[in-house]
């Protein structure tokens, strides 16, 4: 496991270096666009910082309280209906950009969370509770209800399909 963690860390820094390199290259030809992008980044970063704080707290709680045995029992391969419901509701209630949640799911994955439930959680995020009034405003209440119903239904179907195509063992080895 420590080797896996170290590889992940190095991959992240390589990714950041590649993005910065892209900025440098685009900056040579489009300095104005690059400056605009950096300004936008700073604006978004200010909005994301509180979410990052929340992620740190959730990671700490996960490390402190969640035992691999518990995760395997309730969110692992033997998870019952409660696990599916928890994954869908958790996805719907999760706030902030999706990539900050990858970190928490990665931690739960390493503790034994089932592949299907990770995919279900991520799909559940498609239902945006705070934005429902706006969706109703643009598309009507019937459309919003029907679409949300299918999104919840397909969260589970999506989880099953992903797990069929990416078995638990294969996923852990990557």
């Amino acid at each position: 496991m420590p080797e896996k963690r170290e590889r992940r860390g190095l991959g992240g820094w390589i990714f950041l270096a590649l993005v910065l390199l892209s900025y440098g290259l685009i900056g040579l030809f489009e300095p104005e666009a690059t400056t605009q992008a950096l300004t936008f980044f700073l604006h978004v970063m200010r909005q994301v910082l509180p979410v990052l704080g929340l992620v740190f707290i959730l990671l700490f709680i996960a490390n402190l309280l969640l035992e691999p045995k518990w995760i395997q029992r309730y969110l692992g391969t033997g998870a019952g209906p409660k696990g599916w419901v928890a994954a869908v509701i958790g996805g719907i209630l999760s706030i902030g950009p999706i990539y900050v949640w990858y970190a928490i799911l990665s931690e739960l994955q390493s503790k034994g969370m089932r592949t299907a439930l990770i995919a279900t959680f991520l799909y559940g995020r498609a239902v945006k509770l705070p934005l429902l009034p706006l969706m109703i405003h643009y598309f009507g209440i019937a459309y919003t209800l029907v679409l949300c119903m299918y999104l919840v239904l397909f969260a589970g179907i999506n989880g099953i399909l992903v797990e069929k195509l990416v078995p638990q063992k294969d996923n852990e080895q990557i």
Partner: peptide, 10 residues
């Protein structure tokens, strides 16, 4: 995770 999040935002 931090370099991945910052890289994604950038």
């Amino acid at each position: 995770v931090l370099p991945i999040i910052i890289g994604m935002l950038l």
